[in-house]
């Protein structure tokens, strides 16, 4: 194991007309987050921040490391309590808890369980009978059919992250929170996984945290840059064209320089 020739090809993402196992998700929902002031103890992180996640769209939150991107995601996930005078609302008025999926930059696969068991772990944790056929279909979608009984240690980094993607999609949460999901991968694998995710996350409301401007431009419907001192959230940037986009396209270059400009404004000296 481990040689490149054994790595199964990464599918190029599903066509918009093809029904995939990933399409089955909860009813779409938009999310509205307002933070009056976010701080850890004495350390002020960000204030007066308003972030809207559009239904069925991928919203990218782009910024340098240490700027507070992950904290915002953790508030959405409920890992950090919502600060005072702030709000977190779903468009249908119902609770957001229980309708979230989460994907970390680490694959978080259980080393003792095989690939299929890892994909259905959510159902196991809830004591529900796992939908094995859907899990198999999702593994097919991420190009890992035939690897159901493999252990994580036998897989490459990219394959592990594909299993993590399948596990994330297996959760039928309408809102998907992704914390730099491809940051640990090499450039080529990352490029292919972005294509794959763009196809499979169709119809879900996604918040994608990233520090890679190219990633944001490739698969973000809406891009916000979080930078500066004090940290501020840039207005929404909406590059044209369906995702995944070609980073070499002319109209994207214009957005690219815009993003770089906002990032350069950060002026942080502590990096």
């Amino acid at each position: 194991m481990g040689s490149d020739s054994q790595t199964p090809p990464i599918p190029t993402g599903s066509s918009p007309y093809q029904e995939t196992a990933a399409s089955k998700s909860g009813t779409g929902v938009a999310v509205d987050l307002y933070l009056d002031r976010l701080s850890f103890g004495e350390t002020f992180i960000v204030g007066d921040l308003h972030l809207a996640l559009q239904q069925g769209r991928i919203t990218c939150l782009l910024g340098p490391s240490g700027v507070g991107k992950s904290s915002i995601l953790k508030i959405l996930a409920g890992f950090i309590p919502l600060p005072a005078k702030s709000h977190l609302r779903a468009s249908d008025g119902a609770e957001l808890a229980g309708r979230l999926s989460y994907m970390d930059q680490n694959d978080l696969l259980l080393p003792w369980a095989n690939v299929l068991e890892n994909v259905v772990i959510g159902a196991r944790l809830r004591g529900e009978p796992p939908d094995v056929s859907r899990a198999r279909a999702l593994l097919q979608d991420v190009g890992l059919a035939g690897y159901e009984t493999a252990r994580p240690v036998q897989l490459s980094g990219g394959m592990k992250q594909r299993v993590a993607l399948a596990r994330t999609l297996m959760e039928e949460g309408a809102v998907v929170l992704m914390d730099e999901p491809f940051s640990a991968l090499d450039a080529i694998t990352k490029y292919r996984l972005q294509d794959l995710a763009a196809g499979l996350l169709k119809d879900r409301t996604v918040l994608l945290i990233t520090h890679d401007p190219m990633e944001a431009l490739r698969i973000g419907h809406v891009i916000h840059v979080l930078s500066g001192d004090p940290v501020t959230l840039s207005p929404a940037l909406r590059p044209e064209g369906a995702i995944p986009r070609d980073p070499a396209a002319d109209d994207l270059r214009h957005h690219y320089s815009k993003v770089m400009e906002s990032l350069a404004l950060s002026g942080r000296t502590d990096i």
Partner: peptide, 22 residues
């Protein structure tokens, strides 16, 4: 690993079971 604890907690939120069972 704390990340795993968080992930598991999030996955259990969509279930209807008691705290003890979770």
């Amino acid at each position: 690993p704390p990340a795993w604890r968080d992930l598991a907690r999030l996955m259990q939120q969509s279930g209807q079971r008691s705290r003890f069972q979770n």
